[in-house]
Amino acid sequence: MLTPHLRKNVDKLWDRFWSAGLTNPLVAVEQITYLLFLKRLEDLDRDRVHAGKDSVYAKKLPEELEREREERDRAIASGKPDPGEKPAPGETCRWSYIRQQSTDTKHLIETVFPWLRTLDRRLSDHEEDTELAGLNGRMADAYFQLDPNKGQVLHDAIDLIDKLFAQAGDGSAAQDLMGDTFEYLLSEVATAGKNGQFRTPRHLIRFMVELLDPRPGERLIDPAPAASCSAPSNTCAARAPRPRTCASNGTAPRTGSTWCRPPSRSARSSKTAPASSASTTTAPWPASAG
């Protein structure tokens, strides 16, 4: 369990991502976890090397070797000096290097995270005795989502993570810290509203729109709209052959359709909508509904 001091540092870390625009708690937890893993990975790799394994940072994939060979051949063919062998791309993905470039978000976006997505392929076939044994492709969709212009936020996050691990040291204590931090973050996510509302993911919005297949003139009824309802509206508007007209939920209408509140009780009682449609949140109402 994290001490109050460590929880305070984790809260600061979360607040920095929140202030940078990562208001979805799940996304913030994901990004913090990636940075924690990158910090821990360098220590794990050091232990692997001591055990006789090749460093994950030094290993080059076949396509990287082929690309390097082609570049050398082109240089020699054009009369230029042989550029020689390049360092492995992972050498600049060590936490110690990232710390030196602590405000360079572009480096994480363009170098570190593309490398991280290939980490599974850089491991040896004998990782059973390491913490990396259960990786199993979990980094294959790792992307850094911090705004590239938020270099100071990245610097502060790196500094806070270093402070977290400074008290844990190496070995099992650092492993326990990783688990306790992740558990604490998840417990905070359970408190919806602490760091912003949960927003419907874009792919779910698209799925709902495709499933409903709304047509011009139909009304979309949302019995529990959030403060901002423009995402479904804009998605519907993009699919509609012409702007649709829906009852407003009290806010200024946008171009295209508006995600509507349900009709008032008096309006509902005057309608003759089928009973089955009344039980759903997406039942189309006649165009004359108020």
Rank of each mutant, 00 (worst) to 15 (best):
R7Q: 14
K8Y: 01
K12S: 12
G21T: 14
L22H: 02
L26P: 02
A28G: 08
Q31R: 09
I32D: 04
I32M: 12
L35V: 03
L44E: 13
D45Q: 06
V49R: 14
G52T: 07
R69V: 00
E71A: 15
E71V: 05
I76E: 06
K80Y: 01
E85S: 05
P87Q: 03
A88E: 04
R94P: 06
W95G: 13
S96V: 14
L108W: 05
E110Q: 14
T111V: 12
D120P: 04
R121L: 11
E128L: 06
G134T: 09
N136H: 14
N136V: 06
M139A: 12
L146Y: 09
L146A: 09
P148Q: 03
K150E: 11
G151N: 09
A157Y: 11
I158G: 11
I158M: 13
L160T: 15
D162E: 13
G169W: 06
Q175N: 09
F182Q: 15
S187G: 13
S187W: 00
T191F: 00
A192G: 02
F198T: 08
P201N: 06
R202A: 04
I205F: 00
D213T: 12
D213A: 12
R219H: 13
R219I: 09
L220P: 14
S228K: 08
C229E: 04
P232S: 10
C236T: 11
A240I: 02
R242Y: 05
T258Y: 03
T258W: 07
W259H: 12
R261M: 02
S269R: 15
K271V: 00
K271P: 00
A273I: 12
A278S: 10
P284V: 07
W285C: 07
